[in-house]
């Protein structure tokens, strides 16, 4: 499987001299009927460009909350999250959506492909929203991505017509649609069998090898030796930050 080299859209000086992701004293408290629940308790984290960071921890430890803070899909209680030098939580919702569409790709455990759209349309959609490519170029690029994911033959199928592993490949292609430098994956192999999970993991490794930065939440601690760094979260705090 060959992945094309994708250019970073972050300014070179930021990529070169600052961490790509910078979290400082990040606090997230969920207000529930049972009382306040602190999911992140003043977390600090730096992720360098080109890193493959794996985040592990038990259920409820705050892994997904941390990812949500990085992607800007949930609001901070306090602290700072900078991605590519941009304090993303200071952007309004529409700007943040556009920023996210252009600068990062998100991959979920349950794929979240739009069920009524073909696989091709699912990949075209982020390009349509962000307007980075002309229509003809979008289509060529989407087909190219599907080819890279070995899914081109299924381009006009609906998500329900393919397997979970295939859906996750399409979700990866969608995450790469606007050629973002950063990919965030929340338990991307959680619903897949071990063989398919391995295939997906290799794709991620290739992406990192080609210059992408990858942040992945996982329960699988056996991958420790295959990622740049593994971070363990427990009760909303970083337990350790060992280099891989």
């Amino acid at each position: 499987m060959h992945l094309a080299i994708m250019n970073s859209r972050f300014p070179p000086e930021i990529s070169n001299h600052q961490p790509l992701i910078r979290l400082r004293q990040v606090v997230k408290v969920y207000r529930t009927a049972a009382g306040d629940f602190p999911a992140l308790k003043g977390l600090d984290l730096d992720v360098e460009a080109g890193e493959f960071l794996a985040i592990t921890g038990k259920s409820g430890a705050g892994k997904t909350t941390l990812v949500n803070m990085i992607t800007g899909t949930d609001a901070l209680t306090s602290g700072v999250v900078e991605v590519g030098g941009v304090n993303i939580h200071q952007l309004d919702e529409n700007r943040r959506a556009l920023w996210r569409g252009r600068h990062l790709g998100v991959i979920y455990q349950s794929f979240h492909l739009l069920p009524n759209l073909t696989l091709l349309d699912n990949i075209l959609l982020p390009m349509d929203f962000c307007g980075l490519y002309r229509r003809r170029a979008s289509r060529e690029r989407a087909m190219d991505l599907l080819r890279q994911m070995e899914m081109a033959d299924h381009a006009h199928k609906l998500p329900s017509q393919i397997s979970g592993g295939q859906q996750q490949r399409v979700a990866i292609a969608r995450a790469l649609a606007n050629d973002p430098p950063l990919i965030v994956a929340d338990e991307p192999t959680g619903r897949l069998d071990s063989v398919t999970a391995e295939v997906i993991f290799r794709i991620f490794q290739q992406l990192v090898a080609q210059g992408k930065t990858l942040v992945m939440v996982t329960h699988d601690r056996t991958i420790a030796g295959r990622v740049s760094r593994m971070l363990t979260i427990q009760d909303g705090e970083v337990l350790n930050q060992p280099a891989a």
Binding site: A97, H112, F129
Partner: peptide, 16 residues
């Protein structure tokens, strides 16, 4: 609602 969430994740503004 989930689809709305996904669309926002991949870059769609409210208006879109």
């Amino acid at each position: 609602i989930q689809q709305v969430g996904v669309m926002k994740t991949i870059g769609a503004s409210r208006f879109q």
